[in-house]
Design a protein around this nucleic acid. Structure first.
Lengths: 207, 207
DNA sequence: TTGCGATTTAATCAATTGATTAATACACTC
DNA sequence: GAGTGTATTAATCAATTGATTAAATCGCAA
């Protein structure tokens, strides 16, 4: 191998540091010196690998998008006529989302960056939308469409998909107020199981 | 009147500018000079009225909390035994939340500040929690508890309340991806009506 | 009007910011 | 081992940052 190996390592460490720091303090709240130090790299490395601070930000967004897609990747859809299989796929997908948004600490790091792009969408939003949101959205819509006998582009299907996702995502977004109400400081296995059961009950209406 | 009138005006303009700018660019992303200019005030006014930039941030959070509470204020609860009235109150509350989160442009400005406090809760989070989240949370829980014949502190009730709120809030948080999927650039009256109908259908299970 | 505290203003401060530079160290080929 | 292009480093730059200061202005009471 050539020296690109070493280069790729620095690149990777910078992206990891960027995700953590951008996620915690935002874009302007994170300095290039913090990034370099956290990555064990030099300030100049940022310019060398990503042109500038914003380039590193975009690279982080792309990394997050790919990780999200990897975790919530749409499974191969069953035959459109097989209702039972479609429902099973939907259940699996929902369960995976619940686990990801409650138990995966990485997701919490990503949240602020993702939300910021929702509030004022920039270049990073397009990356997230294309690589993560859209595929998941489409898969869920397709499944719900089959189960309700509607068209996947039916507005009712789109809105129902949205409320389904919203319920789950809110365990990540509204995590803090919920945990305080529950008197806990984290989602333990029992709580996650309760949430899963709750969502499974929700899906019963598609059965 | 004494000169406090003029002082209060400057204070108010600073808070309004702060909500807009902090909401759009975050705390570090907003400079004191931007704040002063947007408020038509002098940089020194920030220190005079709020000690420092962070003090202005806290004042903005308090303002947002009060506005949220004002919009979603818990109506007087009906007699605990009156199921019909409880359901009607819940419907009203949900409808009001839908309208607020879809049609109220102010809410979109507040979102980033609120989410940031969820991600890394600071002093501002406690203000939001105490003045806005908690009262709404408690009211909804109380209503759902009555309608399901459970205790308001029952974990199942708490979690169900959370999913209910999550569905609605996600029309604000996940606004951008949804609108793209719908091929619209905003929530028109017809769409809001559809959402309202969808949520009303959700509440049918409590009937 | 005069006086007095409250408020606003312009100027200035030290510190930090993102970016750039030239020099150096590195990995690999010939 | 010399040569070459890649990657890293330390030092430096101009610009911007939040905060502070002393002076100026304001509103009202005596």
């Amino acid at each position: 191998m050539n020296q690109i190996a070493n280069s790729a390592e620095t690149r990777e460490r910078l992206i990891q540091a960027a995700i953590q720091l951008f996620g915690e303090h935002g874009f302007k709240g994170t300095t290039t010196r913090q990034l370099a130090e956290a990555a064990g790299a030099n300030i100049g490395s940022i310019a060398y690998h990503f042109t500038n601070k914003h380039g590193l930000y975009l690279a982080s967004a792309a990394y997050i998008a790919d990780e999200l897609h990897r975790r919530l990747a749409p499974p191969p859809l069953p035959a459109p006529t097989d209702r039972e299989a479609s429902l099973a796929t939907l259940r699996t997908l929902v369960a995976r989302m619940v686990h990801t948004f409650t138990e995966d600490d990485d997701c919490r790091q990503w949240l602020l960056l993702v939300i910021r792009e929702q509030v004022s969408p920039g270049e990073a939003f397009d990356i997230l939308q294309a690589r993560a949101f859209q595929p998941i959205q489409m898969t869920l819509s397709a499944l719900i469409a089959r189960l309700t006998g509607r068209d996947p582009d039916d507005r009712r299907v789109i809105l129902e998909t949205h409320t389904l996702v919203g319920q789950i995502v809110f365990f990540l977004v509204g995590r803090e107020p919920l945990l305080r109400r529950l008197g806990q400081d984290g989602y333990d296995a029992a709580t996650v199981a309760e949430i899963e059961a709750l969502m499974a009950a929700q899906l019963a209406r598609y059965a």
